[in-house]
Structure formats: structure tokens, C-alpha cells
Design a protein around this nucleic acid. Structure first.
Length: 499
RNA sequence: GGUUCCUUCGUCUAGUGGUCAGGACGUGAGAUUCUCAUUCUUAAAACAGGGGUUCGACUCCCCUAGGAACUGCCA
């Protein structure tokens, strides 16, 4: 039997990294077992639905390189299944359940439900949730209400008749048997809403059955509704798929990962310059492992090696630091030309390169890549690291030129010498330049770094930069000399002002 | 509150009755170095607690504690 799995997101917000992990696990499980991966858009909540979210879903799948093997139409590339386009299917099955006596129409108003909730919150009633008011309406009463609704153009909701006694067992591949007393299941949840759309429970069960899903891999937060779904399968007389609930992804404080912990959406990671290969690798290592030492996996490797047995039961904390490390590793694995290609959009966004880039910009970028590749944690860090290659440097604070424990006078003097040094720099080898620098440092009785600091600040505008010799060569003689001259002048002026 | 699930270094994890409890991130120290990084070496760091079962428990069972998720005409 070939395995069939699905990822079933709701387009009600940006794709969450937890969702990404669920998608990845499903996709890898399908691939590793030679099965099929299906994408199903669960857009039955038209209140929260947004086109932007749907687009973000596609962008994310595309970014991660996750494709799906089926759709409502024959022949690929496939459009995904979309629940809002399957409206009639759910109607039909909901009616079937009512006819078979497993569900019933409920005419309770929003207000009644609200006051019920109030009452329960204040502790007046020991009951929780819906009081099953409409479950046992007399046929006459039911007919009267139905007429009433019809007259006012309202639709009753359809609720599931949860058995009052007994219990339901869910077999989970990871957690084993999970038993829940039927009386503990949410009393008669809504299956079909008054707008005619199904709720998650109904649509999910129907579609998983119709799409012949064999394994349901979904977040652990769904465990409590598992038994309800099983009751639904039983009511329809359908075979129950295998369940494998995935441990949750938590924030540093052990709570569900959310905004306050940092970035949570795939889009944010994308825009910050995390590589999809790093995200894929890191995210699947939360709650899954291969052995006691291997932790680098390409997507292709994971397609072969992924297995449900190695999933961990305990929830995992999302470690941003470790992700950064993974990302740095992957950045350094990239061929220089490939890194250049991926960096370009970030420089364009920072307005340092035009679109398309000019020959000159391309040249600078190509030269800059080897200088920054081992300094990058995220691609978005690049623009600030090499801004000075594209734009002039404006030093307005002469103090930044002075090395630690240095003085204005000494630094001004050093800069005079550095100006001459830069003029000679481009006609000599690095070895010769370094020798000259060392000699001068010794003559002045300072460390070589005390000379390099003002040079670096003068040329790059910052105290932290890629290696200065390479940087200078990349920048070229003219701008380098001009910048050192400008710095020397600035410091002289500062000195004259009596500092 | 109720229900269900979870519990190995700070974090991600290996471990499946006998290990000096291993690796990785992070942290500390050191080396390399023109700054920052990278790289390398090295150190500290864990079986939640209590009972059993057993010749022997991180590994099996029970209890306690702690944490989490769920408790909607949202998914």
C-alpha cells in the first residue's frame, strides 16, 4: 500500500515555522516511503481567510522546494485541493450524518451560546461547553424551529451527536494508545456552520477519507480532537487512517512559539536571508534525529533517510542561535558565484545595486563575496557590511579614527603617514605593504593594529570590516587615497579645534 | 478547573537493563589573526523527585512534582 499524506494549512495568516515543520515531515515521509504528498487548502473560515495568506503559502512551498503530487484536475503541474471549492461535498455528507442519526440541527442563537458560556465561566454550572439543548428536541419543536429559521432566512448549524457514554481510543504511531472518555469530548461540536461551510472537523475527516490519506502527521495540539475524528470516521463507516502527532515547537519559555519569541513566519526568515536549505535542515532536527552525531542533511538525503521511528515525543524549543549557526554553515558551503546570486536581491533591496545590476556593481559584488562569506550569518547582513564599496564614506566623528588608548595628535600623525602609505600601496605586494606597516609601527612604538584602525575607519567608515588590504584593492587606488586624505584632514581640523 | 500528553547538559539530541551517559549549538579558556568573523584545541555542563521490579536501572512499573496543549459556528 502506498502511503498518502497531506499538508493541510489554513490561509489565515503567514505560514508559521511550526507549519513548515509539519509540511516537511509529511513531505519527507511521503518521499522516504515512495508515497504521495498532497496539499490541501483548508479555507473554510471565510472570516479569517486572506488572499495574501494563500499567496504566502505558495511562496513558502516554492521557497522550500516542496511540491505536491496530486490535485483536483488530472495532469500536473497540479493545483492544490481547495476546500471552499468542495462546498457541496461537505453539505452532502453532513446531511447524511443527520439522516443516519449521528448529527442534528441546532437552532441555538449566538446570544444563548454566549450567555451559556458566561454562566459556565462564573462557575454556576459544572458543565462545560454546549448544553445539547437541541439534541433532544421533539419532532414538533424541531419542525417549528426549522420553519422559523426558514422564514427569517437563517440556517441552523449541524452538530455531531457525541455518545454520552463509553470511550474512544486513538492509536498513535508515536504516542501509542490515547483513550478519552466520550463524556470528556467537547459536547456536540458544530460540523456545519450556519454559513453552510464545514468546520475543520467535518471537512478534514471527509477529505482525508476521500483523498485516501493513509497517515495523518499533524501537530500535537490536535491530539485532543483525535477521538472526535475517530467517532466521525465510525459514524460514516470509514476506515480510520494512522495517526502520528508531531511534538510542538516551543519558544524559549516553553510556551507555543509565538511572535514574542522572535521571527515565526517563513516569510520573515526568507526576508532576513536564511537559506531554505538551512531552515529545512534545522527545522527537521527539532523533534527528529538520525543518530548520535550526524546533523547535516540535504533535502535529498532527508528524502531517503527520514523515518517516523526517530521522531521524539517531547516538544522542542526553537533555538535561534543554532539556526544562525546552521545558516552560516550553509552560506559558507555555497559556491561564490551562487552566493553572489543569492545576495543580489538583498543588495537591491538596500538600494546598493540596481535591477538589473550594472557591470560595475556585479564586479564589486563578485569581489566582495569572498570577503564576507565567512562573516555572514544571514544574507540580509551583507548590505551593511559592504555598503562602503558602493557608497562614499562620511565620517562626522573624528574620534572614531582614534584607536583605543590613542591620542588625536598621534593619530593625526599616523594618518599623514597612512596617506603616503596608501599612495604607495597599490604598487606593492601585500608582503611589502605589511612589512612597511610593521616597520612604521615599530618606529612609532605602537602596535600594528593602532595603524590599521584609523586606516580601516577612514576607508570603510567602520571599526569592523573585512580584511583591509583586500578591501582596499577591491575599492581601488583613487577612492582609497581620497578617503584617507579626507580622514587625515578631518582629524587635523579636530586637532586645531583644540582637542 | 477538567481532559490528554510530555520530562537526559541552558537548548537540540544519542541512548532502548551493565557506557568514564556520546555529539551539536551556546558559554568559558587558549591558539591563529590587521578589526570582526572563520578555523582549531580545550573546559564546565544532564538522566525532575520518591518508591518498586532486578544481581544490576537513564532505560521496565507505580506515585509525586513540574511543564505544555486542548477545552469556539478558528483551524
Amino acid at each position: 500500500m502506498t502511503t498518502r499524506v497531506r499538508y493541510a494549512p489554513s490561509p489565515t495568516g503567514l505560514q508559521h515555522i511550526g507549519g513548515v515543520r509539519t509540511a516537511l515531515f509529511n513531505w519527507f515521509f511521503a518521499k522516504s516511503t515512495g508515497g504521495k504528498f498532497i496539499l490541501r487548502i483548508e479555507d473554510t473560515d471565510r472570516e479569517r481567510y486572506s488572499d495574501e495568506s494563500l499567496q504566502d503559502l505558495f511562496d513558502t512551498m516554492d521557497w522550500l522546494g516542496l511540491d505536491w503530487d496530486e490535485g483536483p484536475e488530472k495532469g500536473g503541474p497540479y493545483a492544490p485541493y481547495i476546500q471552499s471549492q468542495r462546498f457541496d461535498i461537505y453539505q452532502k455528507y453532513a446531511r447524511e450524518l443527520v439522516e443516519k442519526g449521528f448529527a442534528y440541527e441546532c437552532f441555538c442563537t449566538e446570544e444563548r451560546l454566549e450567555s451559556l458560556r458566561e454562566e459556565q465561566k462564573s462557575g454556576k454550572s459544572s458543565h462545560q461547553g454546549y448544553d445539547r439543548h437541541c439534541r433532544d428536541l421533539s419532532p414538533e419543536e424541531r419542525e417549528r424551529k426549522r420553519e422559523e429559521f426558514r422564514a427569517s432566512g437563517k440556517n441552523p448549524v449541524i452538530r455531531f451527536k457525541v455518545p454520552l457514554s463509553g470511550s474512544t481510543v486513538m492509536e498513535d504511531l508515536l504516542f501509542g494508545k490515547i483513550t478519552r472518555k466520550n463524556s470528556d469530548i467537547s459536547p456536540d461540536p458544530v460540523l456545519l456552520k450556519s454559513d453552510g461551510f464545514p468546520t475543520y472537523h467535518l471537512a478534514n475527516v471527509i477529505d482525508d477519507h476521500l483523498m485516501k490519506i493513509t497517515h495523518i502527521l499533524r501537530a500535537q495540539e490536535w491530539i485532543p480532537t483525535g477521538p472526535l475524528h475517530i467517532l466521525l470516521y465510525n459514524a460514516f463507516g470509514w476506515e480510520v487512517p494512522k495517526y502520528c502527532h508531531l511534538p510542538m515547537v516551543m519558544g524559549k519559555d516553553g510556551q507555543k512559539l509565538s511572535k514574542r519569541h522572535g521571527s515565526t513566519s517563513a516569510r520573515e526568515f526568507r526576508e532576513n536571508g536564511y537559506l531554505p536549505e538551512a531552515i529545512i535542515n534545522y527545522v527537521t532536527m527539532i523533534g527528529w534525529s538520525y543518530d548520535d552525531k550526524t546533523e547535516f542533511f540535504t533535502k535529498d538525503e532527508l528524502k531517503k533517510v527520514f523515518s517516523l521511528e526517530k521522531i521524539n515525543k517531547a516538544p522542542g524549543v526553537f533555538d535561534y542561535k543554532k539556526l544562525d549557526w546552521f545558516n552560516g554553515q550553509y552560506i559558507r558551503k555555497l559556491q561564490p558565484e551562487e552566493l553572489r546570486r543569492r545576495l543580489l536581491p538583498f543588495l537591491q533591496k538596500a538600494k546598493l545595486c540596481s535591477d538589473p545590476p550594472t557591470a560595475k556593481e556585479n564586479e564589486i559584488l563578485t569581489g566582495a563575496v569572498p570577503l564576507i562569506r565567512e562573516r555572514l550569518k544571514k544574507l540580509a547582513d551583507a548590505p551593511e557590511m559592504i555598503r562602503f564599496l558602493f557608497e562614499g564614506v562620511h565620517l562626522n566623528d573624528s574620534a572614531s579614527l582614534i584607536p583605543k588608548n590613542g591620542s588625536v595628535e598621534a593619530t593625526a600623525g599616523a594618518l599623514q603617514w597612512l596617506y603616503r602609505f596608501t599612495q604607495a600601496f597599490f604598487g606593492r605586494s601585500d608582503e611589502e605593504n605589511e612589512a612597511a606597516l610593521r616597520e612604521e609601527a615599530e618606529r612609532r612604538g605602537v602596535k600594528i593594529g593602532d595603524l590599521l584602525h584609523p586606516l580601516r575607519v577612514a576607508v570603510t567608515g567602520t571599526a569592523v570590516s573585512p580584511p583591509i588590504f583586500e578591501t582596499m584593492r577591491l575599492l581601488g587606488a583613487e577612492p582609497v587615497c581620497a578617503r584617507v586624505k579626507a580622514a587625515a584632514d578631518l582629524l587635523n581640523a579636530a586637532g586645531r579645534d583644540g582637542n
